[in-house]
Design a protein around this nucleic acid. Structure first.
Lengths: 222, 222
DNA sequence: TAGATTGTTAATCGATTAACAATC
DNA sequence: TAGATTGTTAATCGATTAACAATC
């Protein structure tokens, strides 16, 4: 697979293509053109083709793209076939919501363990995943290959836990705490899920729309 | 406030400025230059100044920006002072996680009601929010001003619930289901929180890094 | 074959960065 | 005042779009 430097914009679109292709496959669609795919995602056909061409030639001239083939190529690009493993830190509401509703394996990631400090949880299983005590984390990391740490601990302990993780050489953190973990020097990859940023972006557009409506009303339009 | 068309990139950075400014204020910092602020967020000083200049003049030449003032200006831009109201649909794990851990009021949004179909939940309160039956949604919407619907229902009913919401003229949906709700024709604003997209982007970078390491190893470097 | 659609190069557009006069 | 830093214009860079030859 080609592995040239690909812009973040392109990377962020790849999972959207994947989901759309899964949906198409479910509906029995087996071929699609860049134009059709673009239309369904609000992109131009040029952009769709440019995106794929970052990674090689996926289509067939005069025909389009085979849905199943394209899906597999994208899955491979995203590393879904590499058997990445993840552990989850903090079995609170968000942690449980992920363990219960988020199907890690659908995305090629296997959740191998969870950690918490609550004695009642330690030693139990939740959705087939063993819950360890937080004090076993260090040992666990030294004995097992872990690619991704899912951080769902309370804000207050986020930085501390991150310390243990990076000290143990964890590659990547999927961060659900509202704490900014991205330090300039660190080599740990951090992907933030900032709920508040998401909500506030939405609020901006709601406010904008309401301003526009008010402006129209002031001009006497309806 | 100026309200020219501002690019999505700028909008997405505004909440990040806000969080950083809150953090600075907590630490007793009361002034900051575009350069310092940029450094802490991985942006150039030019970009910081350009971003703010989309909305007016927030700083003072030769001095910088007053943290408290700037924070308030950005809060206003994001609509945090407008008393937006939200309702939450689906009191499952994700719904509960939000009600419990996500402080809506911190971001200027008040969560006024929740809805579910589970008889055991209906009529109860959770974290001070009354839980109604899903069949009361229509009536509730006709009697109350609701700006944002937080969609945390199971995948299977997402489209159905969205139908009720849009029929009732809901402006904005904060979508936690992995279902693509953005239909071309709709006037409803949709902000998606796609966990899988986020995880897969992270996986891409993990895979990329591992490929680079393998390539270095193959070249005999360490 | 003719029609369709890719892969890819060239043109355009927009966003980021640099520069600097204004000014606190 | 001198130094610092903004607001803003100009230059650069990168991403998106358009165009079209290649080819199925």
């Amino acid at each position: 697979m080609k592995r040239v430097k690909v812009s973040n914009n392109v990377i962020r679109r790849m999972p959207r293509y994947l989901r759309k292709l899964d949906e198409l496959a479910e509906n029995g669609v087996d071929k699609i053109s860049s134009r059709q795919l673009g239309e369904q995602l609000g992109l131009t056909s040029s952009q769709v083709r440019q995106d794929f061409n970052c990674f090689g030639e996926f289509g067939q001239q005069g025909y389009g793209y085979n849905v199943a083939t394209l899906r597999e190529r994208i899955a491979a690009i995203l590393g879904m076939d590499r058997g990445f493993t993840a552990i989850l830190l903090g079995v609170g509401n968000i942690g449980r919501a992920l363990m219960e509703n988020f199907c890690f394996t659908d995305w090629g990631v296997s959740l191998t363990a969870a950690f918490d400090i609550k004695p009642a949880l330690i030693g139990t299983e939740y959705r087939g995943v063993h819950i360890y005590g937080m004090d076993e984390l260090d040992r666990y990391l030294s004995e097992n290959k872990v690619d991704i740490a899912v951080l769902t601990v309370p804000k207050t302990v986020a930085v501390g836990v991150t310390g243990t993780l990076t000290a143990r050489g964890i590659d990547a953190i999927w961060n659900f705490t509202n704490v900014e973990l991205t330090e300039p020097g660190s080599r740990t990859l951090v992907e933030n899920v900032h709920f508040s940023d998401s909500l506030l972006s939405l609020c901006y557009y709601v406010a904008e729309r309401s301003d526009e409506a008010a402006a129209r009303a002031a001009r006497g339009e309806k």
